[in-house]
Design a protein around this nucleic acid. Structure first.
Lengths: 344, 344
DNA sequence: TAGCCTACCGAAAGGCGTTTCGGACATTTC
DNA sequence: GAAATGTCCGAAACGCCTTTCGGTAGGCTA
């Protein structure tokens, strides 16, 4: 009677030995039966499985991990306060790993390197199989170093160390895409308004813009306007620009925010978008891009793809495949909306 | 010679027995020395600590967890595709747990209950100490049930089951706060434009708005305008409203997006914000609220606080403290900006 | 019938720590 | 000088599972 309490709710969660006892087999056999290994008679296996189901047994991953040295977990170390980049990257990683196969520890370092270090050691102590580091801009960031016993991939912000593995959006190619699209829309008097020149993203996109223009035998109208990533600057800069060069028919905006400011000003000046002036921007931040009038044509950085690739790289490194170090540039994707092509 | 390879880079990460061997003590003593327990002579302890540092030993959390039954991990199960709610909640939780003490598994169910179930069992198999479930709206969501062997707290979206522990923003109180602020700003002809009436958030806020108005001897101008959470609707609804009731001097907007539409229309109609019409909105989504002209006065849902509280509840439940079930309403916070008070 | 294979099962080691408990030795106390 | 007390350390069990390896029983061959 005392020992008859073999039901599910006995003490805490069921263990393998509970199952074994219930099925009248040894622990070893129970393990083999549950894991689908041979050397178990069909009838025995069924008995074990029934018992397992009855007490809703789930194997303890910790013990498993302890044995095979793999935890099936990955750390995502971010400094992206808003989660704007990290969430798509997380989703991409989950996709690549296969949902439920791998779980992700998300740690927010909040731009504080002490906190980052703290989280890093916590992740290592938990024996994650790999680490993805997500920066908050596309500017290169310090490396975590090479003392880390698991593979590390830098996403969004590349590592300054060329021997690390980094993935970052291809801003230069993005600039080219923007211009090529404007040209395809029949524009030729193209200007550029962008954000803080301290940002590599701002500078790289200008480079791409210039390249594409040159390739088409054109050049930028005026100089690229650098200042800050705000609607305010978009408004001010476009006012300046359109006053000085009234014949502008296309504007590349460094971000969706800037583009929204530009749209406001263009409308205030009595011009129409896209009929008179077409605008392309960057980021494709849905909340901004699809709520303006007209909606914004924007270059999406393909972050989910970036996350998938990051996860794949981690995977490869874990499997022992040689991963070539360096920065890999992930191409963006042009999302066409009303700011360049009038809806019918 | 063969066994002299006791340096850090021998095989893989160092284990406790490496430390013990190096310090010339037993594993038990090494453990005690490192964990600061008594029964170790100061000199011995130092020897062990030196050895540990030398080979940069970090205890394997998995083995630890296996012993004491606590993993120091928490699952954050979200359906919030954009990460708009989940990130502040994550940060709040990290704060409450103490950075590095507890790590958070972030799982994105993407609104798919199959995937949610998948993630849930993955979390349980990893023996998380607790689970926070984050919904994507403040509408009640299905319970995960009571079969789960660890404490569960529902954040943002409460559980439909009143015996669960839920935390959700106090939208009703938010509505009151909005109106009280408008009244304090000298407004008395107040209307409301909000989103989809299917959302509890939309309805609850209206209730609060009505209460506060009644308390001041006022009533809503017109009926609350329900439709969708978009700038577009904000524009259309405010145009309708201001045509019908030209003397409106205050508008409560159901979201920042709606408010931005309202701002556009008010300006288009030649009125000024806040001089002629003041506007208060909800969410305090920085990107929207601080980039409009004027900037938006908005009710912040205090999500970080909500995350902290959720973590605290989990903690209490883990510690065995009795947590009273039911829905706890977390008050918002009025953030005053230019849409209600002209900047000097 | 002896010998051998095969199919199935279980004992035990191992992974990495923590904790209990008892032992060895030194020091005090009467 | 014997007993009692203390200090410090180590053997071993434990947590939960996987895996190796040896053993048993039954069936088969010669």
């Amino acid at each position: 009677m005392a020992d008859n309490e073999t039901t599910a709710t006995s003490g805490r969660t069921a263990t393998l030995s509970d199952v074994a006892r219930m099925a009248g087999v040894s622990i070893a056999t129970a393990s083999k039966a549950i894991n689908g290994r041979d050397d178990v008679a069909p009838a025995t296996r069924q008995r074990v499985l029934d018992a397992a189901k009855k007490i809703s047994f789930t194997p303890n991953e910790l013990a498993r991990s302890l044995i095979n040295g793999r935890t099936g977990t990955v750390g995502l170390l971010t400094s992206d306060l808003e989660g704007r980049f990290v969430i798509p990257i997380l989703m991409g990683a989950e996709d690549a790993f296969g949902a439920g196969q791998v779980n992700v520890f998300l740690c927010d370092a909040r731009g504080d390197s002490i906190r980052e270090q703290h989280h890093l050691s916590a992740l290592l102590t938990r024996r994650v199989d790999g680490i993805i580091v997500v920066g908050r801009s596309t500017d290169p960031r310090p490396s975590l170093g090479h003392e880390i016993p698991v593979p590390v991939v830098y996403a969004y912000a590349p590592s300054v160390d060329p021997t690390d593995v980094s993935l970052t959006p291809d801003n230069r190619e993005g600039g080219r895409m923007a211009v090529e699209h404007l040209i395809a829309c029949g524009r030729s008097r193209i200007a550029m308004i962008t954000g803080d020149p301290e940002y590599a993203a701002a500078r790289d996109r200008v480079v791409g813009v210039r390249e594409a223009l040159a390739q088409a035998g054109l050049s930028l109208v005026g100089t690229p306007m650098f200042s800050e990533w705000s609607e305010h600057w978009g408004r001010d800069a476009s006012a300046l620009l359109l006053r000085q060069y009234p014949d502008i028919d296309g504007i590349v905006c460094g971000s969706d925010q800037i583009a929204r400011g530009v749209l406001d000003t263009v409308r205030d000046l009595g011009r129409s978008v896209p009929a008179d002036v077409a605008a392309v921007s960057f980021d494709n931040w849905e909340i901004l891009a699809t709520n303006s009038r007209p909606e914004l044509t924007s270059i999406d950085a393909n972050l989910q793809q970036l996350g998938r690739t990051a996860a794949t790289r981690i995977f490869e490194a874990i499997e022992g495949t040689e991963v070539t170090p360096g920065v890999e540039y992930v191409p963006g994707r042009l999302v066409i909306r009303g700011s360049t092509i009038a809806r019918r």
